[in-house]
Computed example of a mutant assay.
Amino acid sequence: MQQTILERIDRVAQGVFSLVLRGADGPLAPWEPGAHIDLHLPNWLVRQYSLCGDPADRERYRIAVRDEPLSRGGSEYVHRFLRPGRRLGVSSPRNHFPLEPAPEYLFLAGGIGITPILPMLRAAIAAKAKVTLMYAGRSTETMPFVAELHSAYGDRARFMATGDRGRPDLAALAAQSSSRALVYCCGPASMVETAEAVFPSDRLRTERFQPTARTFAPDTAFEVVCARSGRTVEVPPEQSLLDALSYAGQPLASACREGVCGSCELVVLDGEPEHRDDIGAAEGRMYPCVSRALTSQLVVDL
C-alpha cells in the first residue's frame, strides 16, 4: 500500500468532489488510462475509484467521489469529514478496462462513469486517433468535469442532460459509428446494457460499478487446499471463499466484495473455479469474494 496526502478537494459538480492525492513518500506507482485504486479511508472502509488525472504526473493521483444517497459509509465520509492534509493509504493501480490501440474511438459516459474515460480521451487524441465522446447525466450541474471537457475537446464532446432531453439514442449512434471504432462505455447499468444490445461485442469495452444480476446454481460446500501453508479450509454453502479463508487465518485483501474491483484476486493451481465476477478472471485466477468451485476441491497459492 502507498501512502498519500490529500492535497486538494474541489467541487466539480453537484454532489461530486474531486480529490487530488500527493505521494507522501515520493513518486506514486505508474498507471494507464482505465485504471482504478483502492482508497483506504480513516473510518476503516476501503472503496474503489477510477483514476481521472494525468498518468504522466507521478506525484499525484486524482479521483472523483459522488455523494451517494444510499452510501455504505464511503462517499458519506469523503463528503462530510475528509479534509486536505489527511494521510490516506491507496493500493497500487489495477486496470480491468485498458485502452486498446485503434484508429477511432467512441466513448460513452454516464454521470460518474466519465472518470475512467477522461484519461482515455487524452491518450486517444495524443495518439492521433479520431475521437467522439457522448456524455450523459441528469443535468449538466450533476455531471463532473463538463467545463474541463468542453474547454479541452470542443465539438468532439457531446453533452446530454437526460432530465430535459431523455436518454441518448445509442442505437442511432451504433448505426452511425465506424466499423473501425472501438466503443468504450462506463455508466449506469441501463446505459451499459443498452450499449451491449446495440454495439457489436468485438468492438465494445465496458466497465461496471455494480455487479450484473445473474442466477447461479445453489451454493454447495467445497474445500480449498492452501499450497504454501499446507492448510485445508472447508467452505460451507452459506459462506464465501473469501470469508472462509479469512476465518481460517488466511486473509486476503478485499474491497468491493461484489466481484467488480479485483482486489482479492487469487491464483488457482488446481481444480475448476465457478467464476461469478464481472471482471472476467484470467486463466488460473479467481475472485473469492463471489466465486466458488465447480469441483469438490481447489488448490490455491496461499
Rank of each mutant, 00 (worst) to 15 (best):
I5N: 02
Q14S: 13
G15S: 13
S18Q: 15
A29S: 15
W31R: 10
W31C: 01
E32V: 10
A35T: 09
I37Q: 09
P42L: 14
R47K: 13
R47W: 01
L51E: 04
P55I: 03
P55M: 01
R60K: 14
R60N: 01
G73T: 11
S75K: 07
V78N: 05
G85Y: 02
R87W: 11
P98Y: 08
L99I: 04
F107K: 12
G110L: 02
I125M: 05
A126V: 08
M134P: 00
A136S: 10
R138N: 06
R138S: 08
A147M: 07
G154A: 15
F159L: 06
A161F: 07
R165K: 14
L173E: 03
L182P: 03
V183K: 09
A189C: 03
M191L: 10
V192M: 00
A195M: 06
A197F: 01
S201K: 10
S201G: 01
A213T: 14
D219V: 03
E223K: 08
C226K: 12
C226V: 14
G230H: 01
R231A: 14
E234G: 05
E234K: 14
S240D: 04
L241I: 02
L252V: 05
A255P: 02
C256D: 07
R257N: 06
E258G: 07
L269S: 13
P273K: 13
P273R: 13
E274L: 11
G284T: 12
Y287H: 10
S291R: 12
A293E: 15
S296G: 15
